[in-house]
Simulated scan of single mutants.
Amino acid sequence: MSPDDDGYGNDSGRSNDGYSTLGGTRQTRTRLPDGQGGDGYGPRRPARNSRSLFTVLGVVVLLLAAIAFANMGGGDGGDGGDGGDGTRGSDAKKAGSAPTAATGTKPVTGKSGSIPSGFAHDEQGAQSAAANYSVALVSADILKPDRRTQIVRRVFAAGRVDELETKLNQAYSKDFLDKVGLDENGQAAEGMTYVSRTAPVGTKVTQLSDSSATVEVWCTGVFGTAGVGSTNPVSNDWFTMTLKLRWESNDWKVDSFSQKDGPAPVNTDRTASNADDIAKAVEEYGGFTYAR
């Protein structure tokens, strides 16, 4: 991994999807409001009282519901076909788990704005693309109308852009933003810092052909609003994103993606940092360009 000084990945926002989950495989579980079932995303910190925990869970439920809405009716959309241009023939490759050690190969040849682009046309390139796109798709910027448009147009396959942009605009409406404590531009109130940052832990290719790939990205992250009096305190989460990629215009692009919980480790009893420390960390520590 190499530091990304322009801030890519600085603000990762967590949303769960249903366009297969923002994706296509339809693995998302329906998240119900507090008291109606479901296990919840909040960390098990002894210091947090039950009221605060329910508040965190409620906000996460909203985020998950928005993504599920954005993915409804999208269908599979196809995975770009198996061996579309015949370079590898028509037989798709079913890839299993691979060693997690870094290869040392540079992940990309360039960037489109702050998002890496120019991934290699091979298995490693598909994994690097999926890891970097996961960070962008659950970033805080996806909640900002102007940045959302840029992300969708840079990450998704051309045939998916208009549909996804419309659905995401509907999902992240003003009413939704109000409920998570953000204004219509996706900004937190004065004195508050909205935190949504994701870090890929590992990747796994489950399908690969010359024209398409399916990659699972295991992620962790921190999500919430840092600030005195915040009703949505920053908490951590673990989840797995599945991205269906298509080789298009000499790069890997997202055709669809989905999201599910875990695998999650046991949380330690480490004392939570205060809001100022969290906000400061988000401002001072930059993101990365992720490689396989």
Rank of each mutant, 00 (worst) to 15 (best):
L137I: 08
L32N: 12
T268L: 15
S50K: 13
D261A: 12
V228A: 12
S196T: 03
P107K: 07
D277K: 14
V205R: 03
A131V: 04
G37Q: 07
A272C: 00
W238N: 14
P46H: 05
N267C: 06
E284H: 01
S20H: 12
E283N: 09
A47G: 03
E184N: 13
F257S: 11
D183I: 03
P263S: 09
A291N: 04
T198L: 14
D141F: 09
D237H: 10
D276P: 00
G96P: 05
P99L: 04
N132P: 05
G186T: 10
K167M: 12
S212D: 02
S117M: 09
R292C: 03
G42K: 05
S15R: 13
E216G: 07
I278G: 01
F288M: 08
T87N: 04
I67H: 00
N250R: 08
A157K: 04
G81K: 08
E190L: 11
S128F: 02
D146P: 02
P200H: 03
R292E: 03
Q207F: 06
T30M: 09
R154Q: 10
G81N: 04
M241G: 07
Y19A: 04
D122C: 05
R31M: 10
T105Q: 15
G286W: 00
G118Q: 15
R246H: 14
D255G: 14
G287Y: 05
L245M: 08
A140N: 03
A279G: 01
N169G: 15
V135T: 09
G224N: 06
G77N: 09
M1S: 09
Q170E: 12
N169C: 06
P3F: 12
G84S: 15
T268M: 10
F223K: 02
E190G: 07
P33W: 06
D5K: 04
G81P: 11
S273R: 01
D76T: 15
E248S: 02
G78W: 08
A291Q: 06
K111C: 01
M241F: 11
W247P: 00
L22M: 14
A279W: 09
A157L: 08
G75S: 12
V161W: 05
G18N: 11
Y19Q: 10
G42M: 06
T55Y: 03
L208F: 12
P99M: 03
S134R: 12
G40Y: 15
V61S: 08
D146V: 09
H121A: 04
T206S: 15
Q36N: 11
N267Y: 09
P33E: 04
V180Y: 02
V205P: 04
V195Q: 00
S12F: 07
Q127W: 01
V228I: 11
L64Y: 06
R48G: 01
G229P: 06
T166F: 06
T268S: 13
S90E: 04
N169S: 13
